[in-house]
Amino acid sequence: MNSTMLAGSSPGMPAPSGEPSGILVGMQNIGKTYPNGTIAVQNVNLLAGEREFLCFVGPSGCGKSTIFNMIAGLTDHTSGELAVLGTTPKDARKQNEIAFVFQEHTLLPWSKLIDNVTMPLTLRGVSKKERIQEGERVLELVGLKDYMKVLPRQLSGGMKMRVSIARALISRPKLLLMDEPFGALDEITRQTLQDELLNIWCSDRKMTVLFITHNVFEAVYLSTRVVVMTPRPGKVADIVDIEAPFPRTDDFRSSPEFGGYVHAVNESLKH
């Protein structure tokens, strides 16, 4: 069903990969009206392909979180067609290929870091040995391997966010949804985490990241494409391709090219 549905042209069409299997999220004329009558999003068309890093920017209340919640199956769309991993969001969730990071770290305060990061595996009934092994792997990825036995409250905000990311990475997801993950962090921590996240993503480029942010600089720095949304009811106003190569560094942050992209995104936001 989704292959025909996704065949149509849409503003979000990625570089010619052609194969329908390369599409992780397909939205066609997606709309969401909440029971109280709020029209959160309307006519959203977007394709997210394999190995993409898609950043969503848009004014507050334009429905970015709503889109993520629909992809995650937390809420249903009220019109249009939505395919995630080639199936419905609810079935896609069962494949254990999707992971989430919220703005709050959502760590269990009573569980040690190792238990927190392995929580998705515990819920799936994975053996303890394998859990520990994977837990060590992801904590190593975010540089917190020495903190395995520590409780979350002993960590700084940035460290908690790292743990939250580690937990999302533990099941080697194909699709990673991040809703303003760095929104509550200071600028320096934020940039460090951006670099770390990009490094992890670049190292194998096996997953697609959908990333919500209010920060245009962050969006340009991180993404392969920036999705700019209109005020409520949210639509896709524009999609800006960021063609700079990976890995990206501070040099990219200070390049004229970067400024050009930021300008382009800002122009689309004013729109």
Binding site: L74, R93, L108, M119
Partner: peptide, 10 residues
């Protein structure tokens, strides 16, 4: 959010 997380991880 915690409940959502548990739901999302099946």
């Amino acid at each position: 959010n915690m409940k959502n997380l548990f739901y999302l991880y099946n």
